[in-house]
């Protein structure tokens, strides 16, 4: 993988590394203020309970995964294992999907990340009425495009596939 593709994500990670939001709420507050942070909001034409079922089914199925990135050239040698950890928290008012990730290998992450790794993406589902659900996704503006598209598909029910986490 070309290291240049990792630069934006690494930049956000570096920014995160300084602050290291320690929980999902801190991450929600952090993302709108971050240079490479983005909050996306939309309405899904699905009942809240269906969105919850999708999150509960797809998150462990698709995101309990580790990705190894290897690049060897005459000037660099990158070997990083990225481990993702999904968590779904549900109550009557809201369902939350947290995706954390930790990096191991020849990478330096200053500071102390929370247990389970730095928060990477947080998606909230809130019931609007019996048939509609509001979705808020907090994520990097670059580097999480595929994951955000997958979560969007789970929420709308239009695409229930898994994101290829080797893609950004």
């Amino acid at each position: 993988m070309n290291w240049k593709l990792l630069a934006p994500a690494a930049t956000l990670l570096a920014a995160c590394a300084v602050q290291h939001p320690q929980n999902a709420e801190e991450f929600r507050q952090y993302v709108p203020t971050a240079t490479f942070g983005k909050v996306q909001t939309f309405e899904a034409n699905r009942p809240f309970r269906d969105v919850v079922k999708s999150f509960q089914a797809k998150a462990p199925e698709c995101l309990n995964i580790a990705v190894r990135t290897v690049e060897t050239s005459s000037t660099s040698n990158i070997n990083v294992l990225t481990t993702y950890k999904p968590t779904v928290v549900v109550n009557e008012q809201r369902a939350e999907l947290h995706v954390q990730r930790s990096l191991k290998g020849n990478v330096i992450v200053p500071g102390k990340p929370p247990e389970g790794g730095d928060y990477f993406v947080v998606a909230d589902a809130t019931p609007l009425d019996r048939k509609r659900t509001r979705i808020d996704i907090y994520a990097p503006s670059m580097g999480a495009t595929t994951l955000v598209r997958a979560i969007t598909g789970w929420a709308t029910g239009e695409n229930v596939g898994c994101p290829d986490m080797t893609k950004r």
């Binding site: 070309n2 690049e71 898994c162 893609k167």
Partner: peptide, 15 residues
């Protein structure tokens, strides 16, 4: 699933 491109290099995802 194996993909390859000039920019991203070679990637493999499996299930």
């Amino acid at each position: 699933f194996d993909t390859s491109s000039f920019m991203a290099g070679s990637c493999s995802t499996s299930v």
